[in-house]
Design a binder for these strands. Structure first.
Length: 509
DNA sequence: ATAGGGTTAG
């Protein structure tokens, strides 16, 4: 028989006193705890939800599902995967809710390769007739590029509703099957705004903006999303003026824009470098009282930076309660474009101090800032620190920045050496950077080499002709200049249009 | 008390 001394008795007693009420399963209220977890999830407090969940001595399926939806909302597919496995290990049977949450968490991530495994679970548990599970599986298979499985899943849905049909339309569009999508849409007995918007959005993602617009114009009912889809479609195809015109129509129609709409519209303003329009859109945001949003504010920062008002960009940036990687990249890129290399580097310092990890975009911005500021040494240090200190593998664009950096500083041999030592094939951008440097420093031989390489890559890059002709011109080789000009005319190449904040080239009409 | 179909940034 086990002996109990005074100390262990005391320990036992203490344990009893500190044990939470939750340790008495008989009196434990799962329902109220589930409600609390759901509340945390609603308020984006997934860690608190996790704490509550972990403390539960007894759980039911809803507890697991609610926890999973919290992890999904927090964009933690890894956590969802872990939680889901634990759930099945604990002997819980997943239901329709579980599967659609898990599938949506995996969508667009590396975990999406598990879609067929989840599908197998679905079949085994006979959940494949559910509309919710069906649409989630369809999206998963579309994301995985599996057209056959996609239509198979659709057929298995016992009672299809509009949402399942809509999912089929957008899935086909995602796979690039425009005609199938249109045929499905035409055959639909019932259509709603979402069906129409899916079609419009599908044409846009398949680069058929004009077709998208003609469908859009046929819509009898439009909402914020439909308007935003069309506006952002124009922005994505660089039709900024069309985007802005459509925004005006949207306002006239009485539709209230949201943060999605404004992000796109600000992008349009930035695209045509129109500060005056950007300012108007900014006031419009304030007038509508659109709640603060990281992405929308980042678009504001970017718009002001691209329209030449770096002061306003900084002002918005500083006022932001939450910043992410893209936000930091926007302000650093803004400084780089304005030739404020030192400010860019200072902001990078603050960024790392805030615990924000830089990515490849950050380094493109930093290296080009150094290039314009003639800071060769600083650029070298940053370039070498990319992998070693920040774990960011240098890509072609970083090499192009370095070629540009050395080239501008007149260190053409250094630039050439870097190209030769590159771990991959140099692309046009690299050669154009070198060619530009040769133009700057009148190096005909190296310039010819760069131009030849550009030709080899099959690019009729305008700079290839204009820069080389300038080098020839400077050397007094006028015959060559005329020849180049002729070639340019024959190939129909014109000098690239320069953007300017003063002239606002693609700006207001 | 838990889930699906269409929208945003560098």
């Amino acid at each position: 028989m086990r002996r109990l001394d005074k100390t262990s008795l005391l320990t036992n007693y203490r344990q009893l006193c500190t044990l939470p009420a939750a340790s008495h399963p008989a009196t434990y209220n799962i329902l109220s705890c589930n409600r609390k977890i759901a509340e945390c999830v609603r308020n984006d407090q997934t860690p608190s939800a996790q704490d509550l969940f972990d403390q539960m001595p007894v759980r039911d399926v809803v507890s697991w599902n609610t926890m999973l939806s919290g992890l999904q909302k927090a964009k933690n597919p890894h956590g969802v995967n872990r939680c889901f496995s634990q759930m099945t290990r604990d002997g819980f049977r997943p239901n329709e809710y579980t599967v659609s949450i898990v599938l949506n968490a995996f969508l667009g991530t590396a975990f999406n390769v598990l879609v067929s495994q989840v599908h197998a679970v679905v079949v085994r548990l006979a959940l494949n007739s559910s509309v919710f599970v069906g649409s989630a599986l369809m999206k998963g298979y579309a994301n995985a590029g599996n057209r056959v499985a996609l239509s198979g899943v659709f057929d298995e849905i016992s009672v299809k509703d509009v949402s399942s049909w809509n999912a089929l339309v957008s899935s086909y569009m995602e796979l690039g099957c425009i005609h199938e999508a249109q045929t499905v849409f035409d055959g639909m007995l019932e259509r709603n705004v979402v069906s129409w918007t899916s079609l419009v959005n599908g044409y846009i993602s398949n680069k058929r903006v004009n077709k998208a617009r003609s469908v859009f114009d046929k819509m009898s009912e439009k909402n914020v999303v439909s308007w935003t889809v069309m506006i952002s479609g124009y922005v994505r195809s660089h039709k900024f003026v069309d985007a802005l015109d459509l925004f005006v129509l949207m306002l006239k129609s009485g539709t209230r824009p949201n943060h999605f709409t404004f992000s796109s519209v600000l992008d349009a303003c930035a695209g045509c470098s129109s500060l005056i329009l950007g300012q108007q859109v900014h006031s419009s945001i304030l007038k509508f009282g659109v709640p603060e949003d990281v992405i929308m504010s980042t678009s504001l920062v970017d718009m002001y930076a691209k329209c030449g008002d770096i002061g306003a960009a900084l002002c918005i940036f500083r006022s932001m309660p939450r910043k992410n990687l893209v936000t930091w990249n926007s302000i650093i890129g803004g400084y780089a474009r304005h030739g404020l290399a030192t400010r860019a580097l200072e902001e990078f310092q603050s960024m790392t101090e805030c615990g924000c990890r830089p990515d490849e975009v950050t380094f493109v911005n930093l290296l080009s800032a150094c290039g314009h500021g003639g800071m060769v040494e600083k650029g070298e240090i940053l370039f070498n620190s990319m992998k070693a200190k920040f774990g960011v593998e240098p890509k072609v664009e970083h090499y192009a920045c370095m070629v540009d950096l050395y080239g501008r500083a007149g260190e053409l041999e250094e630039a050439e050496k870097l190209i030769q030592g590159m771990p991959f094939q140099p692309d046009v951008v690299v050669w154009v950077a070198l060619l530009g440097a040769c133009g700057l420093h009148s190096s005909l031989e190296l310039g010819e080499l760069a131009a030849t390489e550009i030709d080899k890559l099959g690019h009729a890059h305008p700079a290839r002709y204009s820069t080389l002709s300038r080098i020839h011109g400077e050397r007094g080789a006028w015959n060559s200049v005329q020849e180049f000009r002729k070639t340019m005319q024959q190939k129909g190449i014109r000098k690239q249009n320069a953007g300017s904040w003063v002239e606002s080239p693609q700006g207001m009409r």
